[in-house]
């Protein structure tokens, strides 16, 4: 990751016409710089609009990157850090293709400013697996063919894996709810459901838990 080429952002004038909204955005997002490790606020600091160095905690590594305050986490992951597994589809929070985990909770990277992710623990699709050793949800997606073009797949996997973290024994409706924001144009949903329920069942069997669906002991 350290040798990922970074793009130099040259200094530029503040856009005329960008107006109050953009300026306010900069000030608000700059608040993130004043958070301590626990996320507590210690007053505002104004930065930007030029690129500033920040450090992001991604997939267990601390990565240095230079971003303008307006950069989204999705743009920063993809364009600046080369982590292109996170996809941008709608770029406005309506499709969940860019789903990552922030402090273990699914979040939309296109709706999160990079500066607001400082001090948070970010997990992307690249960090869900251990190298080429797939996470059990990824294994199940392959087994059930829960993908076609694959563009929604990273976001789907992140949503389903997060569901199983918070609910180890989900029902079909729980899976539908967990991916209700994840749009897929190829129509892989039925197999996404099957894959996720399969992982839950296998985990329950492996841990000797009672399967609540069937009432039988695995």
């Amino acid at each position: 990751m350290a040798d990922t080429p970074k793009i130099e952002i040259s200094r530029r004038g503040f856009l005329k016409g960008a107006g109050i909204t953009a300026a306010t955005g900069v000030i608000e997002s700059a608040n993130a710089f004043a958070r301590d490790a626990k996320g507590a606020l210690h007053g505002a600091q104004t930065i930007g609009p030029d690129a500033q160095p920040i450090k992001l905690h991604i997939n267990g590594h601390e990565l240095a990157v230079s971003v303008e305050p307006r950069y989204t986490l999705a743009e920063t992951l993809r364009d600046n850090l080369g982590l292109t597994g996170t996809k941008v589809v709608c770029d406005r929070g309506s499709c969940s293709a860019c789903t990552v985990w922030i402090d273990k909770v699914p979040a939309l990277a296109c709706m999160t400013l990079a500066v607001d992710a400082v001090g948070r623990e970010i997990t992307t699709i690249e960090g869900l697996s251990h190298g080429d050793t797939m996470h059990s949800v990824q294994v199940a997606f392959v087994k059930h063919d829960a993908m076609q073009c694959g563009f929604c797949t990273p976001g789907m996997v992140m949503s389903c894996a997060a569901l199983l973290e918070r609910n180890p024994n989900p029902k079909l409706d729980d899976v539908k709810h967990a991916v209700s924001g994840n749009l897929c144009r190829c129509g892989t949903y039925p197999k996404v459901f099957a894959a996720t329920l399969d992982v839950a069942q296998q985990r329950a069997q492996a841990s000797g838990l009672v399967n609540l669906d069937t009432g039988t002991e695995a």
Partner: peptide, 21 residues
Amino acid sequence: TQRYDGPAKALGKAKYTADVQ
């Protein structure tokens, strides 16, 4: 038969045109 590029897609390693750098 298992999808040939299933693991690459599930791992987020598949490089689409939008991902080319």
